[in-house]
Design a protein around this nucleic acid. Structure first.
Length: 436
DNA sequence: TGGTCCGAAGTCATAAGGTG
DNA sequence: CACCTTATGACTTCGGACCA
């Protein structure tokens, strides 16, 4: 501006010099006025020393922590056990920054395992249960239990007749159940049992408390996906309920489905909540727009979203009979059928049961003759000591098992097998070695 | 051409909300 | 308390604008 009017003076040079020298500073200052949020970041960035993040620290020590917790990968390790191994080490590397268990177990540990493609035996606590129809196997929705269960799935096995008669052993969907029912709440189990829901429709019922754990999704993925069984989902009419429904039919950060599963919504949906008690939706800090998007992604219609933003209806608002009526109406509408195996298996089973019947008649005859001819049975001396000696040798047995072995050494194997079988019947799929 | 700066987009770590 | 998820603030990265 000035140079055309008058010759440059020393003053002009000084001004230029000052402006040049301070231009960067001015620029920064003005930028900071426009973006006050950046000030802290910039100062911290200029003054901070490079430090280790919790993630970096975790990456350094994770393997050692797992190996310690799992006794060199020979036993299953609970996420929490690994955490206790890892925590002091991570904190030492990060200026004692507190390490939250949730962050460790939900983010660091699974991310590490995924990134390194590891085959570690990491275990989370069971949450909820699943129960087969007819067999009454009731198993916890935990990592180990689900894995063991999936390992043992089998085709129906016909058990040949012996003293106890022929039977058919079934573990899993084949010959066992025709669909899986997922219920958001565990509390309905007594009701389902009272009306015999599972047995009458050959349903395996899975319930977790709230959002499904990954073990439950893995179970559903395998059982439904590999056998083409439908999954029915029962949930509240609320934001969480739709989320529960949504996470069972799409991939999330923590679990990706390997199979395609046909997921059927049993409600509650708009059509189901007429006349039911509504309560205000739980307060949330999430904006309505985000909720709307989420809900739509989880399958809610516009009309439903309109209600869900303000109100909710619990499954508990239904009377027991109305709930069962609704479930069965929808199962019927779907066309769910009882399990009936193919002709070949039916034939085999028929023959074996027939044989069993004949054997029983024979046995009863023999029993009559036997009772007449028996005399007093000799009992070995020092039976108590003998039992104690057997138990010392095989501490996993009970006293009556020991008597059988005293009577006949060759029984040991059978006794063991019986015990194992009994445990499986009762739904103990935790496997002998068990969690540490 | 090569250094500096900006800010959108991405990552990390945590908080908070939900189930029973 | 366990677990799950999404939201969010703090920080980090990085492509491109800018400038000398």
């Amino acid at each position: 501006m000035s140079e055309t009017k008058r010759p440059r003076s020393i003053g002009d040079d000084i001004i230029d010099a000052v402006e040049t020298a301070t231009s960067k500073w001015t620029r920064q200052k003005k930028s900071e006025e426009r973006h006050p949020g950046m000030i802290r970041y910039r100062t911290s960035r200029m003054t901070k020393e490079p430090r280790t993040t919790q993630k970096e620290a975790a990456w350094q020590i994770m393997e050692a922590a797992y190996m310690a917790a799992s006794s060199n990968d020979s036993l299953p390790a609970l996420a929490r056990q690994i955490y206790y191994q890892a925590r002091p080490k991570i904190m030492a590397l990060t200026e004692d920054k507190e390490l939250a268990y949730g962050y460790f177990s939900q983010t660091l540990l699974p991310d590490y395992i995924e990134e390194h493609d590891l085959d570690w035996n990491v275990v989370y606590d069971a949450r909820g249960h699943f129960e087969e129809p007819h067999t009454n196997r009731n198993i916890g929705c935990g990592t180990i239990q689900v894995d063991n269960y999936l390992d043992k799935l089998t085709e129906p096995q016909i058990v040949k007749a012996d003293f106890s008669g022929a039977s058919v052993d079934v573990i899993g969907p084949q010959g066992g159940y025709s669909a899986v029912l997922f219920c958001e709440k565990e509390g309905f189990s007594p009701l389902f049992e009272a009306v015999n829901l599972a047995n009458r429709h050959d349903l395996m019922i899975v319930s977790t408390k709230g959002v499904s754990v990954t073990a439950a999704r893995k179970l559903i993925d395998s059982v439904c996906g590999a056998n083409n069984l439908p999954l029915f989902v029962l949930h509240d009419f609320d934001v969480a309920g739709f989320m529960i429904f949504g996470t069972l039919r799409r991939d999330t950060r923590r679990y990706q489905f390997a199979n395609t599963v046909e997921v059927i919504d049993l409600g509650l949906r708009l059509a189901d909540i007429a006349g039911l008690e509504r309560e205000p939706a739980a307060a949330t800090r999430t904006s309505a727009d985000i909720l709307r998007t989420q809900l739509a992604e989880n399958g809610a219609t516009d009309a439903e979203i309109g209600i869900l933003l303000n109100e909710r209806v619990e499954l508990n608002a239904m009377t027991s009979d109305a709930l069962i009526e609704m479930i069965e109406r929808k199962l019927k509408a779907y066309g769910l059928k009882k399990v009936i195996p193919d002709e070949e298996l039916l034939t085999q089973a028929y023959r074996e049961f027939h044989r069993s019947q004949l054997l029983r008649e024979k046995f009863e005859e023999m029993q009559g003759e036997f009772e007449e001819s028996t005399t007093e049975i000799e009992v070995p001396k020092n039976l108590q000591e003998k039992v104690r000696a057997r138990l010392n040798k095989h501490p996993d047995l009970r006293w009556d098992d020991a008597i059988q072995i005293v009577l006949d050494k060759s029984q040991l194997h059978e006794v063991r097998a019986e015990k194992q079988k009994a445990r499986q019947k009762s739904g103990d799929f935790t496997d002998g070695d068990g969690a540490a």
